[in-house]
Design a protein around this nucleic acid. Sequence first.
DNA 1: CAAATAGTGTCTCTAAGACAATATCAC
DNA 2: GTGATATTGTCTTAGAGACACTATTTG
Lengths: 275, 275
Amino acid sequence: MSDEKTFLQQYDQGDYERPSVTADIVAFKLSGEDSGNYRRNVQTKLSLLLIKRNGHPYRGCWALPGGFLNPGETIEQCALREAEEETAVKPVSLMSIGLFSEPNRDPRGWIISNAFVSVMGAVDVPQHAGDDAGDAQWFDVLFEPGENGDDVLTLSCGEITLRAVVHEDSSAFGMSSFSIKDSGQLAFDHAKIIAKALSALRSSARDFEVIFDFLPEKFTLTELQNVQEAILNISLQPANFRRKVAGYVEETDEYTSGAGHRPAKLYKRKREEVR
Amino acid sequence: MSDEKTFLQQYDQGDYERPSVTADIVAFKLSGEDSGNYRRNVQTKLSLLLIKRNGHPYRGCWALPGGFLNPGETIEQCALREAEEETAVKPVSLMSIGLFSEPNRDPRGWIISNAFVSVMGAVDVPQHAGDDAGDAQWFDVLFEPGENGDDVLTLSCGEITLRAVVHEDSSAFGMSSFSIKDSGQLAFDHAKIIAKALSALRSSARDFEVIFDFLPEKFTLTELQNVQEAILNISLQPANFRRKVAGYVEETDEYTSGAGHRPAKLYKRKREEVR
DNA sequence: CAAATAGTGTCTCTAAGACAATATCAC
DNA sequence: GTGATATTGTCTTAGAGACACTATTTG
């Protein structure tokens, strides 16, 4: 039957209204922060890339980087392209956290957005990101329970502090959704996107295999622990952590050196053999 | 500054090309199947709703129900509407499993689709679903590892058996993605959508809170166990299962009766107190 | 040697799995 | 009583958390 060919040639998508589609990136960075004392270890922190809006709408507010889906690319390719443009670093992996499609989420018109989480390790020093005229900046992230069951998102960068309040409403199938109670200085519905991103990142960061992607090939167990602690915002006993992670890593014969204390053995991720 | 108002009035979304957006529903049903013997319990099975395509393209193939996103609605509302239209049952909860956006996934043009999983319990007897002229049918689901690391999806409904082969390629952030090795008689990229749906459903079905949504208000512990076993395709020891679930349920003073064996106590889900 | 981190040993407690045994109904 | 499922009890083992202790480097 060659009807099919004819059918497709004559097929017309019609002039139904169609939305513009974008990909927004919730780009996290794990940064080590030096603390004066030469022998004290750097502390690992989680920070988030935001861009200050110069134009309308939400002029002067801070927004997630993102951009429009072009014909011929997948939404993942679009997200990858945008993330790379903004951070000058190719993300190792992207996790979709859903399509945000409230009809009025963007005052400019019908624009729906698929949001992605990307995490880059402290290794991938993004020198060129956030440097252009100060309109892109990395914010320290704090996301904690607040009053009456709300969650408070605090983003700080030097003098600037953004504070948003969201509420976790449904947790269908283990994936939380949030509604905005106070957007603060965050543009659009980005407060709820960030909240969902953090919630998704935290639940996946319990899996060591996920964490490995945020570290260089060789790492110390303390570094590994710091990364997990920074993301989950928890604190663990080194002894217990080491036992837990033992099955996922293998030793190398290299050590760190130069710090003012006992050197640490470097490990690498243990790859499962192909069955 | 009332520039913003002016700006928005003059804003033009431009004539960039935009995709059509659809929601596809991976609608599962938990059905009990009688087995002749009056005293033997019914067995719980997982089945999936598919629709036989009458028109081009993929004429004669089986496809997931779905439909276009309309202006003024969210993608969740769209999914809910489509699911209700097809199954005559309002789904209790929907889980998004991602946006499928391969440019050539639909031969008719640039059509991207957000897929959702929906599960209805054996309670919500969908009498009217799958009855219209036999072009919608519930298929028994089997999804198991096959040769060289592939996964085999077998869907059967009476005489009809569909068989697709997929391969789990990346598992970034714990969420698997699949590529199609053999679509069988499944239309479009629906084989990979179904695979991802099953994989997502299985990982969330380890959580009892999720399972409760698939059962009536009052249930026996064996029913609860059967549902989890049907979804995860596993088999557990009743004694161990009961201990595990004990903290999530509370007793009622009602019992089942009429079966050819010892009656079972009915339980209900234990709701957490509001803190 | 002192400061700081790296790494080990051991105890307890909990949860999961295996398996055996008892309870109760419809016919 | 018989066949079927419901329900309980116990043993073992694996893993997480708490905590105290030892090891090694640089200045």
